[in-house]
Amino acid sequence: MPAAPHEKPLDALRTLLRSFGQIVLQRNAATGACVLAAWLVSDARLACAAFTGAIAANVGAMLRGYDCTDTRNGLHGFNGALAALAAFTFISDDARAMAVAILAATAAAWLLGPWERLLRSRGQGFYSSPCLLVTWAWLPFVRPVSAHAPASEMPGWLGPLPGLLAGIAQTSFASSALAGALIVVGIAFSSMRAARFALAGAALASSAQWLVAADSASFDAGLLGFNGALTALAVADCGVLAALAGVGVSVALQQATLFYGVPALTAPFVVATWTTRRIMRDTRRTCTNGAERSPDDSVAVGHRKQASRAALLRER
């Protein structure tokens, strides 16, 4: 994107980092830098994919004339980054993955405008749903490789901690306990409360699904915890009970998709968050953001103030 005359030289980089931070629902460049570090320690190919997707999505948003404030705060770039990460995760050939990544990221950005208006009219945020829609559109036409690399082996005395951290890493398609630890640190830069909710959500979801399926390999790779972590982050402003309910719904949905062989990705998180927020609204309970915030953070997750177009969303 061409920089306006009044913009600082590092604004473009800050926009990309905020896009990465939005993957874990934090509008914070420091969080995004930690997510980037997580990709680098897991697989540098993922970092390349994320940059490609975020840039393509931001350019697409600019061409569609979307709000520049939203772009600068990462709301257009993060779905593009996720769409590109999905392409590089499921397609082994780099050239083909790059082509799909650019097209999918641009499509996600172009879809976002009308899709967000539709969801906003129903009182919902879009989260990672644009990425899901475009990924589901091309995924049936490829023979996907293994979606996630196995987690690296860690000392046995750490117990379940590596699997828990791997679940945090999987929120951004990374796959290792070290990557998960970096992401937790990044979330903590934005909000200590959010970091606690992410860890608790991953732990609850992983434990519940392990008790149901007793799949140690999936637990160690983090495949059982990432939807729970994201759901807990998304509904943290509604309180502990709402977060527990949301994680429970995400666990049930993820188990259902496993049973039917559906490539769920982050769909359990999105649907569980929509469901929880709808219940909270129907019971006339309010969600107020009690998270600790840095001066660079955004307003409550999943909400946009009606009175001001400049109000910031912190949603996935």
Rank of each mutant, 00 (worst) to 15 (best):
G21F: 02
R27S: 15
N28I: 00
A29Q: 09
V35E: 02
A38V: 06
N58V: 02
R64N: 09
D70T: 00
R72Q: 12
A84V: 06
T89L: 11
S92W: 09
S92V: 04
R96I: 00
A97C: 10
M98K: 03
I102H: 04
L103G: 12
V134G: 05
W136E: 03
P140R: 02
V142W: 02
V142Y: 03
R143C: 04
P155V: 06
P162G: 11
P162W: 07
A166I: 05
I168S: 10
F173M: 14
A177M: 07
L182Y: 03
V184G: 11
F197M: 11
A200D: 08
G201M: 03
A203K: 04
A203M: 12
L204S: 04
A213W: 07
S218D: 12
A221K: 04
L223Q: 14
L224S: 06
G225V: 10
L233A: 13
A236K: 03
L258I: 07
G261N: 10
L265N: 13
T266R: 12
A267K: 01
V271N: 05
R278E: 15
I279K: 00
R285I: 01
T286K: 07
T288C: 02
G290I: 06
E292W: 12
P295H: 11
V299S: 15
V299N: 08
A300S: 11
G302T: 06
R304S: 07
K305Y: 01
A310Q: 11
L312Q: 14
